[in-house]
């Protein structure tokens, strides 16, 4: 049994797949296609609303998927997901805190929100890892998930508290984060996240084999010469960076970070030099497709994107759990 997709298939697929979802995403909407090109308003909609939104959807999906690949590899748990293990929750607390602080009259710069989200994400991740990162037994795996649940519950309680104290305007924004929405898309976010993605592209490909070694276990990774604690720190910081950007731009969008790495591994095995690019492109494409559905299914109204991804993702997650369960029962 060898992999469905080899190394040589990855690059063409990574170039082709985004086009297949981005173009329909751009053209579909409540108005006919001709309107987009024939009228001035249509042109404005196309270039200032549709294009940044589709690109942002792709980038958010890509960053979440990348965070999912990194975190799953590090904790050697295919069920880990930035949302499930509390990173998104921590980041959302940071983002919500910013909203409340601004509403209470503090003059803070806009990037302060991403910074607070980043801090929240790192903190949540460290707590979860401290509790849940110990060996690879089944117990350790469930401990990680339990720690994630604990952090998530705490995060939603804090967000609840913040919403209780918040003004109307702030409350609206906090709700926006906890449901997830891509309607805040603009070119600034697109450029920011494209920069983060590029930085990741410069950093991670050279470290793909180190991540592979970590899949075998910490002892194995160290015995082939890897500084495991340094690598773990790198993963923690990049995951927090990716997730906090995605969360401050579009709120909590679940399951993309879980299912994209999974799909990629099903298609091409677990080697990170193939999984990383494929999962990133799959994550981006999935979110563009989901967003297109969210905009068109009940047009001119719009479904919250988080609901669409959860409706697709949760059944897949259950299917994965059933598979994992079989694997451990022999």
């Amino acid at each position: 049994m060898s992999n469905l997709l080899g190394q040589k298939h990855i690059l063409p697929l990574c170039l082709l797949l985004p086009l297949l979802v981005v173009i329909p995403g751009l053209l579909s909407g409540s108005q006919p296609v001709a309107w987009l090109f024939a009228t001035d308003i249509g042109q404005t909609v196309l270039w200032q609303i549709r294009l940044p939104r589709v690109l942002m959807a792709f980038l958010v999906g890509a960053l979440l998927a990348w965070a999912g690949v990194l975190i799953q590899g590090m904790v050697r748990n295919p069920l880990a997901d930035p949302g499930l293990i509390g990173v998104s929750g921590g980041a959302a607390v940071g983002a919500a805190l910013f909203v409340v602080l601004v509403a209470s009259g503090l003059a803070l710069p806009g990037w302060g929100q991403t910074l607070l989200a980043f801090g929240g994400g790192v903190l949540a991740l460290l707590v979860v890892l401290k509790l849940g990162l110990s060996g690879q037994s089944l117990q350790a795996m469930s401990f990680l998930i339990l720690a994630g649940i604990a952090v998530n519950v705490l995060a939603s309680a804090v967000i609840g508290l913040l919403s209780y104290m918040a003004t109307n305007e702030a409350l609206r924004q906090i709700t926006f984060w906890s449901l997830g929405s891509l309607s805040g898309a603009d070119w600034l976010w697109v450029v920011t996240m494209a920069l983060a993605l590029t930085a990741g592209l410069l950093f991670w490909p050279r470290r793909a084999r180190r991540l592979d070694a970590l899949l075998l276990g910490e002892v194995e990774a160290r015995s082939v010469g890897i500084n495991v604690s340094q690598l773990q720190w790198q993963v923690v910081l990049w995951v927090a960076l990716f997730v906090s950007l995605a969360v401050s731009a579009s709120g909590m969008i679940g399951f993309i970070g879980l299912i994209s790495p999974h799909l990629a591994r099903l298609l091409t095995g677990a080697a990170h030099r193939r999984v990383m690019p494929l999962a990133v492109v799959l994550g981006g494409s999935l979110l563009v497709a989901a967003d297109t559905l969210a905009r068109t299914l009940i047009a001119p109204a719009e479904l919250p994107i988080g609901i669409v991804t959860t409706l697709i993702g949760a059944p897949l997650f259950i299917a994965l759990m059933v598979r994992e369960k079989r694997r451990f029962q022999w």
Partner: peptide, 29 residues
């Protein structure tokens, strides 16, 4: 760590792998 691993190679007791790496990819490491 890298210097040490360049000199001393450890084969730990067998542990179960959880991710679908191929045999060749494991050997490559």
């Amino acid at each position: 760590r890298a210097d040490w691993a360049a000199r001393v190679t450890l084969v730990p007791q067998l542990s179960s792998a959880g991710f679908p790496l191929t045999a060749e990819e494991v050997v490559e490491l």
